[in-house]
Deep mutational scan, measured.
Amino acid sequence: LSCHYCHSLFSGKPEVLDWQDQVFQFCCRDCCEDFKRLR
């Protein structure tokens, strides 16, 4: 899998964000929080 925010590859459990009828996967909570802050 690749992170939607930083595009790094990861194999662990992703942080998942269901936002505006789309599902995004992130490598860590920090990337998820940064993505939400920018949107």
Rank of each mutant, 00 (worst) to 15 (best):
L1M: 15
L1C: 09
L1V: 15
L1Y: 10
L1R: 02
L1D: 13
L1E: 11
L1W: 01
L1I: 15
L1S: 04
S2Y: 15
S2D: 15
S2N: 15
S2V: 12
S2K: 15
S2C: 13
S2F: 12
S2A: 12
S2Q: 14
S2T: 08
S2R: 12
C3S: 00
C3H: 00
C3F: 01
C3T: 00
C3L: 00
C3W: 00
C3V: 00
C3E: 01
C3P: 00
H4I: 07
H4G: 15
H4K: 13
H4Y: 12
H4M: 14
H4T: 13
H4A: 14
Y5K: 15
Y5P: 00
Y5A: 14
Y5W: 12
Y5I: 07
Y5F: 12
Y5T: 09
Y5G: 13
Y5L: 11
Y5V: 12
C6A: 00
C6G: 00
C6W: 00
C6R: 00
C6V: 00
C6L: 00
C6H: 01
C6Y: 01
C6F: 00
C6D: 00
H7N: 12
H7A: 13
H7M: 06
H7Y: 12
H7R: 10
H7V: 05
H7S: 14
H7F: 13
H7D: 14
H7E: 13
S8D: 11
S8E: 13
S8W: 09
S8K: 15
S8P: 00
S8Y: 13
S8F: 08
L9P: 12
L9R: 09
L9D: 07
L9W: 06
L9Q: 11
L9T: 11
L9H: 11
L9N: 06
L9I: 03
L9F: 07
L9V: 09
L9G: 12
F10D: 01
F10K: 02
F10E: 01
F10Y: 05
F10Q: 01
F10L: 08
F10T: 05
F10V: 08
S11M: 03
S11G: 05
S11R: 03
S11I: 03
S11C: 02
G12S: 08
G12V: 04
G12I: 03
G12L: 04
G12M: 05
G12W: 04
G12T: 10
K13M: 02
K13G: 05
K13L: 08
K13I: 06
K13T: 07
K13V: 05
K13N: 05
K13F: 06
K13Q: 10
K13R: 10
K13W: 02
P14K: 01
P14A: 04
P14C: 02
P14G: 04
P14S: 03
P14M: 05
P14Q: 03
P14L: 02
P14F: 03
P14N: 05
P14R: 02
P14V: 04
P14T: 03
E15A: 07
E15T: 11
E15L: 09
E15W: 08
E15M: 13
E15N: 09
E15V: 10
E15P: 01
E15I: 11
E15F: 08
V16H: 08
V16Y: 08
V16K: 06
V16T: 08
V16S: 09
V16I: 06
V16D: 01
V16G: 04
L17N: 02
L17Q: 09
L17W: 06
L17I: 09
L17G: 06
L17F: 07
L17Y: 04
L17C: 07
L17D: 03
D18Y: 06
D18E: 07
D18P: 14
D18C: 06
D18R: 13
D18G: 06
D18M: 13
W19R: 13
W19K: 13
W19V: 13
W19C: 14
W19P: 13
W19L: 15
W19N: 13
W19E: 13
W19A: 13
W19D: 08
Q20M: 15
Q20Y: 04
Q20L: 11
Q20G: 15
Q20K: 15
Q20N: 15
Q20R: 13
Q20P: 13
Q20A: 14
Q20C: 12
Q20H: 08
Q20D: 15
D21A: 07
D21K: 11
D21M: 11
D21W: 04
D21L: 05
D21I: 05
D21C: 04
D21Y: 03
D21N: 10
D21T: 09
Q22R: 13
Q22M: 15
Q22T: 13
Q22A: 14
Q22F: 10
Q22G: 14
Q22P: 07
Q22S: 14
Q22E: 15
Q22I: 07
Q22Y: 12
V23Y: 05
V23P: 11
V23H: 12
V23G: 09
V23M: 15
V23F: 11
F24K: 11
F24S: 03
F24V: 12
F24D: 03
F24G: 06
Q25G: 11
Q25M: 13
Q25F: 08
Q25E: 14
Q25A: 08
Q25D: 11
Q25H: 12
Q25P: 07
F26W: 02
F26L: 03
F26I: 01
F26D: 01
F26Q: 02
F26T: 02
F26K: 02
F26M: 12
F26R: 02
F26E: 02
F26P: 01
F26H: 01
F26G: 02
C27F: 02
C27L: 00
C27Y: 01
C27I: 01
C27T: 01
C27G: 02
C27S: 00
C27D: 03
C27V: 01
C27Q: 01
C28F: 01
C28N: 05
C28Q: 11
C28W: 00
C28S: 08
C28M: 12
C28K: 12
C28P: 01
C28R: 11
C28G: 11
C28H: 07
C28T: 12
R29Y: 14
R29M: 14
R29E: 09
R29G: 09
R29C: 11
R29F: 12
R29N: 13
R29A: 11
D30M: 15
D30T: 12
D30W: 04
D30H: 07
D30Q: 08
D30K: 12
D30C: 09
C31R: 00
C31S: 00
C31I: 00
C31L: 00
C31K: 00
C31G: 01
C31P: 00
C31A: 01
C31V: 00
C31Q: 01
C31E: 02
C32I: 06
C32R: 05
C32N: 04
C32E: 04
C32Q: 07
C32D: 02
C32H: 06
C32G: 04
C32W: 03
C32F: 04
C32V: 10
C32A: 08
E33Y: 05
E33A: 08
E33F: 06
E33L: 05
E33R: 05
E33S: 04
E33W: 04
E33D: 11
E33H: 12
E33P: 01
E33N: 08
D34R: 06
D34H: 07
D34T: 05
D34Q: 06
D34W: 06
D34N: 09
F35R: 01
F35L: 01
F35I: 01
F35M: 07
F35T: 02
F35G: 03
F35N: 00
F35P: 01
K36P: 01
K36Y: 02
K36R: 07
K36M: 14
K36T: 09
K36Q: 10
K36E: 09
K36N: 04
K36L: 06
R37Q: 14
R37G: 08
R37W: 07
R37D: 04
R37L: 11
R37C: 03
R37S: 12
L38P: 10
L38W: 14
L38C: 12
L38A: 07
L38Q: 14
L38S: 10
R39A: 03
R39L: 04
R39Q: 15
R39K: 05
R39N: 15
R39C: 14
R39S: 15
R39M: 10
R39G: 15
